[in-house]
Design a protein around this nucleic acid. Sequence first.
DNA 1: ATGAAAGCGCTAACAT
DNA 2: ATGTTAGCGCTTTCAT
Lengths: 344, 344
Amino acid sequence: MSKSVNKTITLKEVAAAAGVSVSTASRALSGKAEAYRISSATEQSVRKAAEKLQFSPSLLARSLRSQQTKLLGVVLPNVANPFFAAIAREITLAAEEEGYSVLLTDSQENSETEARLVDQLQARQIEGLVVCPVGIENRHLKSLAKQKLPLVLVDRGFDDPALVSVTSDHRAGAREGMQQLLEAGHKTIGVLQGLPKTLPNRERLAGVQAALEDQGLKYDPSLIAGHNFDEASGYAAAKILLTERPEITALFAFSNQNALGALRAASELGRTIPDDLSLIAFDDHPFAAYLAAPLSSVSQDVNQLGRVAARLLLEQIRTGTPPEQKHYQIPVQLIQRASIQPPA
Amino acid sequence: MSKSVNKTITLKEVAAAAGVSVSTASRALSGKAEAYRISSATEQSVRKAAEKLQFSPSLLARSLRSQQTKLLGVVLPNVANPFFAAIAREITLAAEEEGYSVLLTDSQENSETEARLVDQLQARQIEGLVVCPVGIENRHLKSLAKQKLPLVLVDRGFDDPALVSVTSDHRAGAREGMQQLLEAGHKTIGVLQGLPKTLPNRERLAGVQAALEDQGLKYDPSLIAGHNFDEASGYAAAKILLTERPEITALFAFSNQNALGALRAASELGRTIPDDLSLIAFDDHPFAAYLAAPLSSVSQDVNQLGRVAARLLLEQIRTGTPPEQKHYQIPVQLIQRASIQPPA
DNA sequence: ATGAAAGCGCTAACAT
DNA sequence: ATGTTAGCGCTTTCAT
């Protein structure tokens, strides 16, 4: 064991140690000995020298030369959010399997930051990009696609037919969730919505409406409240709805954070779940089963979301052409627990 | 708006467009016009050309030339785990602020994978590395430090004095948690431990022992069970402990996943929290307050953990020398809720 | 079967 | 005040 500081070894030094030229060393080490008819003696001595010197090729130099960085970019609104973290993980694992590394960035739910990060990733010559777009603004993303950079949108797609996107089947999920409430006999159902203009939110509202119409009921916009997917919005919306419309017997929260807010609001208003109020939430959660009232939910298959996005991206890079199908929908799953009861 | 595919613009083309040499273009764009006494007319024309062509310098080429990649590596046992995701986020945000990008990898709780990823990151010439080590094995990490690569360990440090690490004050936290149980009057307390040989686990056990000894009670290893930080281990350990030692009146779970397992086991055994069994857990959770029995916990300041790690790493890179203090402890916070009651 | 040399896009030392 | 040149470490064409 040497105690000296190991300086970085270059191919040149390996070549010198093996007594060959850099080109021969390069060929020997990159498995092209056969193709270049390099004698196996030479090949071995190069390999041995590399081994001894602990040579590790500079991916930087290789990338510059080959114009292939083996780098993927990922832009998420909030890396700490378990939902996005799960997506990050799937992409990371899939990338690693194919020799790609992942540059992870956090747009902080801000469209301008998102655009800036995308530019920065491009400056690093990423070969592909996964974005969970923050908002409605998608000019910068469209322009990426025009530049032929393989791009996949996850979770919050746009209805832009030019962009490849992977989302849950929000509409079907919301419809099924709503059906649960309706089948239990609820007639006046409050909806705690998320960020209004996003595609998931719009799709979920459409699902709610469809379920209502299935039953011959009419969609009443005054039963919709909320402005975001967080706890605060859920709390405020539930508080308003339950106060102004005391005839409400059930709530559909569009995120589990919204549901948490609803729980807090309900408790403050003295309404117990499920006896005095039924509740269902979009997105399942490990703790959902252990709540005072085990929470029924519409569960997104977030791992699948990430996996499909990664697969689509890597395939697009490999083949050089975008997939024919542009929009991929991942089914959601209804998880029935005890937070829904017939109205009193 | 042109419809053509924007090919990548190089400095050479900008220089040509501005009618100057590449070096002048380089200097004009990197704010060195002053230092090289470039006429502001020239500077402006270069800037304008760059703007018009939408020039974005290749960080790849710049990195190769300058031997500074502005790249940080992060290795986490499981990116999808909210605890690690929070750390990833803090590092990402801090890095971004100083112009660094982050290569994120997932070791899948596997030491060999961890070592492989570290090598791979080195091949990309990262300037610094944050690792949440998987296990006990730390040869590859020590060797990194010897190679003078700035390195910071988070969460699961080693007691190796050569390595810089940031961890919660596990010992104090466990001691305080235990005190809560003891002060409520519990005498026989089961411990649901995590991965036994890890530093956090050992430190927490030491804290438990200290709290016991404070009260003149003795530490009974047969009251310790479990082998991991996940739900399954918590469940199995709680099941065994509560079955074999029915005199146990309280449980200390070393992770919130362990606590979840305990909840399931207790429910199966017909013991209600907090009436028939008290419970406290390491790690708080947004849902903890909304459980059937709002869960008391010892909360780690995970954001602070990530922030301090990032700061230490960036400082180390900036100054070129490791910090004098090697081990940083982040205080934990006791969160009192309703899951602890005096024994029946 | 192997070496020499060019070049990926950039920066900086060395000319003028 | 600006141009020329070398070189970061690698791969590959072209030569022998």
